[in-house]
Design a protein around this nucleic acid. Structure first.
Lengths: 158, 158
DNA sequence: TATTGTTATACTCTATAACTATA
DNA sequence: TATAGTTATAGAGTATAACAATA
């Protein structure tokens, strides 16, 4: 966790506390941390952190031109891509190939094992989804899915 | 950011990438980080981090019994409450009073300034809400709000 | 001896800056 | 000289462990 807002047990509060809890940003922040933590726990057994899953998915999506490009696309420092790629390579999930046209560049590509691990990550995410939404009605589940999808299309790059 | 899944530009992907992006846990994780970052930026001018807002709200809600109780209620280490309370005290937002019935306990209480700061945090959250959802239709906005509220009632303590 | 708050320390995550090699 | 990748270093954030005061 990081800049995350603290979650709060109720204690049926005063006005300020209730008003804060009622905001979308509070709910997104707290539930987002909860969800990310559960996903992290699911993929830990694979030797992966959530960001590894992000790299695998980005490569699968064809964002593979170079490590620099991957870094800027994912919004992280190039040095972090190096570390993540090192670890994924050690797991046999990606290969690094020097671009013969510009030997400074390392081109990352998914291996079969990498695709297998990505599929496991998708399975893990779907498992967490099922757990998270188990107590919701079908109507609530679809409200949530539609609301998040709409917001994601607005706010996430792509 | 921390255990957060990486956000991805599209590059109309292969199956794995799309399947991951489609999950509730991925959307919650990425949008939650985005939302928390924006909220943090809003309250920074007040000298606060999101977790300070969490403490203010918890105190406003009456969760004030002791620092230990606050720590367990908020799901963080007691030593973190000490640091957050130190900083809030320095801002004049909370007072520490020894409980006369058990002099080991420090009872935290909101000051007028603390209530004012909490109100500013609520305003900041509402501002971010407005920005985040500005591009959504009224239908989408209410889907999002209802979905998150339902999930929050299920998953957040209280 | 057990518990509250505090302080000291260590660990994780990630960015910035320095360095190497290619261009 | 500029750029891709790498390595070294530093900072933020937070937990764990050691400690002091009180019960």
């Amino acid at each position: 966790m990081d800049g995350t807002i603290l979650r709060m047990s109720d204690v049926k509060g005063n006005k300020g506390a209730e008003a804060l809890r009622a905001t979308v940003v509070f709910q997104l922040g707290t539930l987002g941390t909860l969800a990310a933590d559960r996903f992290a726990a699911q993929v830990e057994a694979l030797g992966l952190k959530p960001k590894h899953a992000g790299v695998l998915a980005a490569l699968d999506a064809g964002a593979a031109a170079s490590q620099q490009e991957l870094a800027s696309r994912l919004g992280v420092a190039p040095s972090l891509i190096v570390a993540l790629a090192d670890q994924l390579q050690e797991l046999g999930a990606v290969e690094r190939v020097r671009d013969p046209e510009d030997r400074r560049r390392q081109v990352l590509s998914l291996t079969g094992e990498g695709r297998r691990l990505l599929a496991c990550c998708v399975g893990a995410a779907e498992t967490v989804d099922a757990e998270l939404t188990a107590g919701l009605s079908e109507t609530q589940r679809s409200s949530l899915a539609r609301g998040l999808r709409a917001l994601g299309e607005q706010q996430l790059p792509g």
